[in-house]
């Protein structure tokens, strides 16, 4: 499955990327699986997803939990808890 990934704030700074498109193996089924898969891609990703419990995710512009399925997702974003306002 090919999916667009977006990173914001310190997750973006640590991965060194704003966005990328990746091909995912079938074993990656949830947001949590995806973070574990990304973490194994290299030191930048390992640093970015080190505190993965703390990282929030959105699928196609909607907030989701780590146990949410990524099936049919077109765009998945990872970011720290929001601090606007």
């Amino acid at each position: 499955m090919s999916v667009k990934l977006l990173y914001f704030a310190w997750v973006r700074e640590k991965t060194g990327l704003g966005e990328e498109t990746v091909d995912l193996p079938g074993s990656v089924q949830t947001v949590s699986d995806l973070m574990a898969w990304l973490k194994a891609r290299g030191p930048e990703y390992e640093a970015a997803f080190d505190k993965s419990d703390f990282i929030r995710a959105a699928i196609d512009h909607t907030h989701v939990t780590h146990s949410t399925s990524i099936d049919k997702a077109r765009e998945i974003a990872f970011f720290p808890p929001v601090t606007g306002g």
């Binding site: 310190w10 959105a58 974003a77 970011f79 720290p80 808890p81 929001v82 601090t83 606007g84 306002g85």
Partner: peptide, 26 residues
């Protein structure tokens, strides 16, 4: 509106000072 915006709207603040930039913690 402000309470929801602060916890749900995807904005992130980075403060720049004499010691460089720091991402604001929620």
């Amino acid at each position: 509106l402000m309470d929801y915006l602060k916890t749900k709207a995807p904005f992130w603040k980075k403060e720049d000072g004499p010691d460089g930039g720091t991402w604001v913690d929620a």
